[in-house]
Measured scan of single mutants.
Amino acid sequence: TTFEIRVGDLRITLHNADEEEIRWAEEALRRGIHADEILRTLEERRR
């Protein structure tokens, strides 16, 4: 599944994310964390 998060002009697309990952990514985007860093962190958490 694919889920797109939008916060203002910012956007990130997550693939195969669970609800916790989606909530975490949305909050991180709101705090101004760059999408590349969010994706990198999620990848590390999945390992």
Rank of each mutant, 00 (worst) to 15 (best):
L42A: 01
R46N: 04
E21K: 01
R11L: 11
V7A: 02
D18L: 09
T13I: 11
A25I: 07
R47W: 11
W24C: 02
R46W: 06
R6D: 08
R45Y: 10
L29K: 00
E43A: 14
L29G: 02
A35R: 05
R23E: 11
D18R: 11
N16D: 08
R45N: 09
R31K: 09
I33L: 08
R11I: 15
E26Q: 12
L39V: 06
E43R: 11
T13R: 04
A17P: 14
A25S: 05
I5D: 05
D18S: 13
I12V: 13
R11K: 13
F3S: 15
H15F: 14
E21M: 09
E37G: 04
E20M: 08
F3W: 04
H34C: 09
R45M: 12
E43N: 13
E21S: 08
D18N: 12
R31P: 00
W24T: 02
W24F: 12
A17T: 08
F3V: 15
G32D: 03
E43T: 12
R40F: 11
H34T: 12
T41R: 13
I38C: 00
R31E: 06
R45L: 07
H15V: 08
L10F: 08
E19H: 10
E43W: 13
T41D: 06
N16T: 03
E4F: 04
L14S: 00
E27C: 15
I38N: 00
T1A: 10
L29M: 10
E20G: 12
D36W: 14
G8F: 02
L14K: 00
G8P: 01
R40M: 08
R47A: 09
E26F: 15
A17D: 02
E44M: 15
E19D: 12
L10A: 11
R6G: 05
I22S: 04
I33F: 12
R30M: 11
I38G: 00
H34G: 13
R31S: 11
A17M: 05
W24D: 01
D9W: 04
A35G: 09
T2N: 12
I5F: 02
N16E: 05
I33M: 14
L14N: 00
F3L: 14
D18Q: 08
D9K: 06
R31W: 12
T41Q: 11
L42Q: 01
E19W: 12
E44P: 01
L14W: 03
W24Y: 14
I22E: 02
E21P: 00
E43M: 15
W24K: 01
A25E: 00
T2V: 12
R40Q: 09
W24M: 06
G8E: 04
I33T: 09
L29W: 04
I22W: 04
L39K: 06
A17Y: 02
E4W: 03
I33K: 09
E26H: 10
R23W: 07
R45D: 03
E21H: 03
A28H: 05
H34I: 08
F3G: 13
A35H: 06
R40A: 08
L14E: 00
I5G: 01
D9P: 07
L42V: 09
A25K: 00
R40S: 09
D18W: 06
I12L: 14
T41L: 10
E19F: 09
I5M: 04
I38L: 08
R31H: 08
G32Q: 03
R11N: 07
R30T: 10
L10G: 03
D36I: 11
N16W: 05
R6F: 14
R6N: 13
N16K: 04
E44V: 13
E26N: 05
I38Q: 00
T2P: 09
R45V: 07
R6Q: 14
W24V: 02
R45P: 01
R46F: 05
D36K: 07
R46Y: 05
G8Q: 02
R11F: 13
T2G: 15
A35T: 10
R30G: 06
R47M: 14
T1Y: 13
R23P: 01
E37F: 13
F3R: 14
R11S: 15
R47V: 14
G8I: 02
T41V: 12
W24Q: 02
V7L: 05
L10D: 09
I38P: 00
L42N: 00
F3M: 14
E21V: 05
T13K: 06
L14C: 04
I12D: 01
E21C: 09
A17R: 03
A28E: 09
I12G: 00
I12R: 01
E43H: 12
L42W: 03
L10N: 07
H15S: 07
T2C: 15
H15I: 10
R23I: 10
H15N: 08
F3T: 15
R23F: 07
E19L: 08
A25M: 04
A28T: 04
N16Q: 05
E19N: 10
N16F: 08
E19S: 10
R23A: 11
E19M: 11
A25N: 00
A17S: 04
G32H: 05
G8D: 03
R46E: 02
R47E: 10
T1V: 10
